[in-house]
């Protein structure tokens, strides 16, 4: 029990330090990039404004302060969950993040779940029945998807299912003008294609890891012993092999959940969705410091939380981890 508590405490301290370090980097990195957000905002008009006016704009966004003052203010604002105001989009960063994050989670969470389940099912089957027709077929499909650029698969889906067959819409999150259950069904209809594309793309990479893990574990002595005891193949796979595949699989899934909030830029662009991917991309191009900082802050929290959850789940999936530490 004490071992577990020390393990947890150690992890918490390490995560706290990492969080501070990453938040500091989030502040520094945008400012180290070439380009100036105010000049970017004014564009060609920068030269024709009074320097006084440009300074006023800098002051409005706190960019006239010495860098250490900006840093302290940034940390203070973070403690109040005040992420500032977008320099380019004329909206508060929290407002921008709330909307984008909601749609991103709605897009990426089911994709991650479906992709992971698909990978676990197909990977286990292919790995357990290695060199069978099913293995060849599944591996060929997974490799094709794995090497397929995201935009190509997404455009193929859009062209085939939305344009030619007309089964799905050509983009956006809703058709507009709907309420209640109609609205929910409309959202599901709009998200079906992007979720399918993202599930297949995410599932393909995980499939290969699961397949290889299952294949390696299938040769272990304890699997031979299980067979000798007369256990059925299904029981061996479910009770003995998959259990051992779970730790690396959990780690992979946790990481993908963590990075979930960075959005799926290519899918968002192809399907015209407003998510975190395009929000971050636009902010980087425009050097919109407050939005970049806000997005990276959320991303950091999610990645750290997902890693932490993975650490905890590791201990549950494999009791030896907690004991050894």
């Amino acid at each position: 029990m004490r071992g577990r508590r020390d393990y947890l405490l150690g992890k918490l301290i390490r995560y706290g330090f990492t969080l501070f370090l990453i938040l500091s980097l989030n502040f520094a990195l945008p400012r180290m990039m070439p380009g100036d957000p105010i000049i970017n905002l004014l564009g060609e008009n920068a030269l024709h404004n009074d320097p006084e006016m440009i300074e006023l704009l800098r002051a409005e966004h706190g960019l006239d302060q010495p860098i250490h003052i900006q840093y302290i203010r940034y940390l203070c604002q973070l403690t109040e969950i005040n992420l500032g105001y977008s320099i380019h989009k004329n909206l508060s960063v929290v407002e921008l993040l709330t909307s984008s994050l909601f749609w991103t989670v709605l897009l990426v969470f089911p994709s991650d779940v479906f992709g992971s389940l698909l990978a676990l099912l197909c990977g286990s089957l292919a790995g357990f029945k290695i060199n069978s027709r099913a293995d060849y077929l599944l591996t060929a499909i997974a490799l094709s998807l794995y090497t397929c650029p995201a935009f190509l698969l997404a455009m193929l889906f859009l062209s085939l299912f939305a344009f030619h067959l007309g089964l799905f819409p050509l983009g956006n999150l809703t058709s507009g003008g709907k309420e209640g259950i109609d609205y929910l069904l409309d959202v599901v209809w709009h998200l079906s294609l992007p979720v399918a594309a993202l599930s297949l793309l995410g599932g393909a990479s995980k499939f290969l890891v699961v397949r290889n893990s299952v294949m390696q574990i299938s040769d272990q002595q304890f699997v031979v012993a299980a067979r000798a005891k007369g256990l059925t193949e299904g029981r061996i796979l479910n009770k003995h092999i998959i259990r051992n595949v779970l730790p690396p699989f959990i780690s992979m899934v946790a990481l993908s959940f963590g990075f979930m909030v960075s959005g799926a830029l290519i899918i968002e662009i192809v399907f015209s969705l407003n998510g975190m991917g395009t929000l971050i991309y636009d902010a980087v191009l425009a050097r919109d410091y407050p939005v970049m900082q806000g997005c990276f802050f959320i991303l950091t929290i999610f990645v750290l939380f997902a890693n932490f959850a993975a650490d905890m789940l590791y201990a549950l999936a494999d009791p030896r981890i907690g004991r050894s530490s």
Binding site: M155, L158, L170, G171, N172, I269, V270, S272
Partner: peptide, 15 residues
């Protein structure tokens, strides 16, 4: 109607 992708916009136009 806003699109982020010009190809999707042109498909919508052809449709």
């Amino acid at each position: 109607r806003m699109f982020k992708n010009p190809d999707a916009m042109m498909l919508a136009f052809q449709k």
